[in-house]
Each structure stands twice: as structure tokens, then as C-alpha cells.
């Protein structure tokens, strides 16, 4: 493991006119580390995620990413071509709604294979074999490979989206509420799968969620956001077991106990 971070974020702010999206966010993300960003809706976590994944340009601040050659590159100074290349090779983005991240009108196999073809793979047999392999890794039956995601359940779509993102062996994955909208038993299986994949592949991930249980299961470190600012950050277990900021205390005590 490297002794340098994978992503360095410094004083990142995004304003929508006079409204604050997120303000003055600073953190480092290390290789293989899963960082959860939690907070209520409207707290700026999705804005932060979109800025980090360069889907949005921040108003101020910097973020630099360590490329595979070990050099840090300033994300917002890269050309659009370079950013998009990074997006489809070294990064993944898992949307809350799988329909946003999948091509709903092409088969599951083509969804998984698209990134491979985008980076120049031109051998049908190999692409298909890789797709079969990835579908089995996300627990989708091989005989569903030629079905369109429209015919899949919500949980299957989400797993397919994960396979599609991981097929090029990314080092950093952004996830926006990956278990949102799924019922609890499906959530549990998906979390189990994600945890396995993240560990096996040594992925770094930034997971945005409002579900503290998801954060607890997946992440090593977490940031709590409120009104666009980070109010508390630290090891996940520490933050959840011993919340210091009043807002975090409120958040933790609001968890429904069954």
C-alpha cells in the first residue's frame, strides 16, 4: 500500500448563486479506503460527490488525484477528454437510480462490456467472457446476459450497475445512495456483495448515504455534513459510538431501533 493519498481535496466549495452547495471541504482519501459522507437531504453530500467526480465544477478549491503513474493531477485543470477517460477507466460512479447509470435498452452483457469496448477492446469472445465473469461475481445468472435491464428487478439492476463500473478495474468508485429504494433484505445482500468486492479489489470508495447503517457496514471513515459544511469526521465506529458534534448526536440518536 502506498504512503500517499489517492485523492487530496482542499477547501472545496460550490455555490449555487448565493446558496451554499458545499463549503470548505478538505480531506484526503487513501487507497483502499472507504469514506462515507452522511447527512440529511439538502446537506450538500451529493453536490460534494458530483464535484469530486467532476460531474460539476466547484466554485473554488482544488482536488488532485494520483494517477496510475504516481503523479498527482489537478482534477479541474484536466481537459474534458482526460476527465472523461478517467471516468470510464480508473473511476466508477454508481447512481442511486440504476436507470441513470445503465443503458436500459441494451442487454446486460453489452452494459458490462461497454467500458471495455470504450477503451479499445475489439474481441467479441473475450468481451463476452468478461461479462459472464462479472455477472457471476455480482450474482446475476449467466442466462440473463442477453436480457435488457428493463426486465431486471431493482436489486439486480443495482448489481448490474456495479458490475458495469468495476469491469475496467477502477481504483476509485463514487456511490450515491447505492442501496436507496431497495427493500431491506435486498439491501443487506447488496451491502454484503459491495463489502466483498471492495475488500477483494482494494477499491477506494466515497459513499454518499443518509443511512447510518450503510455507513457503518461499508466505511472505515466518515464525514458528517450539515448545511454544506463538514461538522464532524473521523473513524466510522468512533463517530457513531461517540458522536461529538451536537448535530451528529442528534443524527445517531434518531436511528430507529427495531
Amino acid at each position: 500500500m502506498s504512503d500517499e493519498p489517492l485523492l487530496r481535496v482542499s477547501a472545496l466549495s460550490k455555490f449555487y448563486g448565493s446558496r451554499v452547495g458545499c463549503e470548505n471541504v478538505t480531506f484526503d482519501l487513501w487507497p483502499g479506503e472507504v469514506l462515507a459522507v452522511v447527512g440529511e437531504s439538502g446537506s450538500g453530500k451529493t453536490t460534494l460527490l458530483n464535484c469530486l467526480s467532476t460531474r460539476l465544477l466547484p466554485s473554488s478549491g482544488t482536488a488532485s488525484y494520483r494517477m496510475r503513474d504516481g503523479q498527482f493531477r489537478e482534477l479541474y485543470r484536466m481537459s474534458e477528454a482526460e476527465r472523461r477517460f478517467l471516468m470510464r477507466t480508473d473511476w466508477g460512479f454508481v447512481h442511486q437510480n440504476p436507470a441513470d447509470g445503465l443503458r436500459m435498452t441494451v442487454s446486460a452483457g453489452a452494459n458490462v462490456g461497454e467500458r471495455l469496448m470504450a477503451v479499445g477492446d475489439r474481441h467479441y469472445g473475450k468481451i463476452r467472457a468478461t461479462a459472464v465473469d462479472w455477472l457471476s461475481r455480482v450474482e446475476i445468472d449467466e442466462d440473463r446476459i442477453d436480457d435488457e435491464p428493463r426486465a431486471f428487478s431493482g436489486g439486480m439492476r443495482q448489481r448490474l450497475q456495479i458490475a458495469r463500473n468495476l469491469v475496467t478495474g477502477p481504483r476509485l468508485v463514487f456511490m450515491d445512495e447505492p442501496t436507496g429504494g431497495l427493500d431491506v433484505s435486498v439491501q443487506a445482500r447488496l451491502l454484503d456483495l459491495l463489502r466483498g468486492l471492495v475488500t477483494d479489489l482494494g477499491l477506494a470508495a466515497i459513499v454518499v448515504t443518509h443511512d447510518l447503517a450503510v455507513a457503518r457496514l461499508l466505511s472505515q471513515r466518515m464525514m458528517v455534513m450539515k448545511d454544506g459544511r463538514v461538522v464532524e469526521s473521523g473513524l466510522t465506529d468512533r463517530v457513531l459510538d461517540d458522536p461529538r458534534a451536537p448535530y451528529t448526536q442528534l443524527l445517531v440518536s434518531s436511528i430507529l431501533q427495531v
Binding site: 472523461r84 477503451v119 442477453d146
Partner: peptide, 16 residues
């Protein structure tokens, strides 16, 4: 940006 992976997705679908 010369991003033409999608064109092969169509051909992939044909073969599949």
C-alpha cells in the same frame, strides 16, 4: 473526443 465505444455496443448486441 473520439469516444466511439458505444458504436461497438450496437454491434455487440447484434452478435449477442
Amino acid at each position: 473526443l473520439e469516444e466511439y465505444g458505444l458504436m461497438h455496443v450496437k454491434l455487440y448486441e447484434d452478435i449477442a
